[in-house]
Simulated scan of single mutants.
Amino acid sequence: MRRQYITNIGLLFAIGILSSVLVLPVSTVEGRVNQNKCISMYEKYKELGEQKFREKYKYKSDLHDCIKLYKNPDWYFVGKSKIDKNFEKIQSGFKNNNAKIDIKVTSTTLLGKEKYLVKFQACSEKSIQRPSFLIESKLEWFIAESGKSMQAGKCQSYHTQINSKDTAQIKIQYVSDLTEFTNIKYRKI
């Protein structure tokens, strides 16, 4: 009986030590917010930027607490650094692979609420096998890969669909190095 009592006390003591080690002090925001919800919304926050994110998700109960977490340099979750690196690369620009590519949107057609069919033309000084383009708007962005080659000195027409509030927000850029965009959606065009 005495031995079982000592074992139980030892077990309680061990649990007390482990729980004090495992329970790390967190700020009041991190303690009361559902961090899983914030983690799932983090990529949208990066895509939209703070202002647009606030407008789009203004009715979410944890919105302000999540934004406080996003701004905290010590806040981290598995996968956060990959998301951050992807957005840094997009913001810093693209390598052109020394080929001059002129891209012109030739038409946009409204297909439904905030959905457009975009037709564009890309002209190149050099031949390019399977060119890729970053298609972006405030609502969506993705890499569009073409199966059509671009011939030197000629223009090639392409089309794709994108979600956007209006046509002025739609941007298209040539991407020469796809290794920089490993965590972004890909579509065939």
Rank of each mutant, 00 (worst) to 15 (best):
K44V: 02
I189E: 05
K148E: 00
I6G: 04
E43A: 15
I39H: 02
E145Q: 12
Y70H: 09
I170K: 07
F142Q: 06
N97D: 15
E114S: 13
Y5S: 13
G16K: 01
K85S: 15
E43H: 09
N96T: 06
E140S: 08
D166H: 03
D166Q: 05
S127R: 05
I135R: 04
G153A: 02
S132L: 03
T28K: 11
M1P: 02
L117H: 03
I128R: 05
T167A: 00
T179N: 13
R32S: 14
L117R: 08
I135D: 04
K126S: 14
E136T: 07
E47R: 12
A168G: 04
C38G: 12
Y186E: 06
M41N: 13
W75Q: 04
S137I: 11
D84E: 14
K113P: 02
Y158I: 05
F142C: 07
E136C: 02
D102R: 08
G16N: 04
Q169Y: 12
I184A: 12
K104N: 10
S107L: 07
M150L: 14
A152W: 00
G93K: 01
I172T: 05
V29G: 06
G31K: 08
F77V: 08
R130Q: 13
Q4G: 02
K56V: 11
T167Y: 07
I128K: 08
Y186F: 15
K82A: 15
K115N: 13
F77R: 00
T106V: 13
T106C: 00
D65V: 03
P131L: 10
I103C: 05
L178P: 07
I6N: 02
T28R: 01
N34E: 10
E88T: 12
K138Y: 06
C155W: 05
L139M: 14
R3S: 06
Q173R: 12
T106Y: 01
K44L: 11
K188D: 06
S137Q: 13
N98T: 06
G49Q: 03
N96S: 10
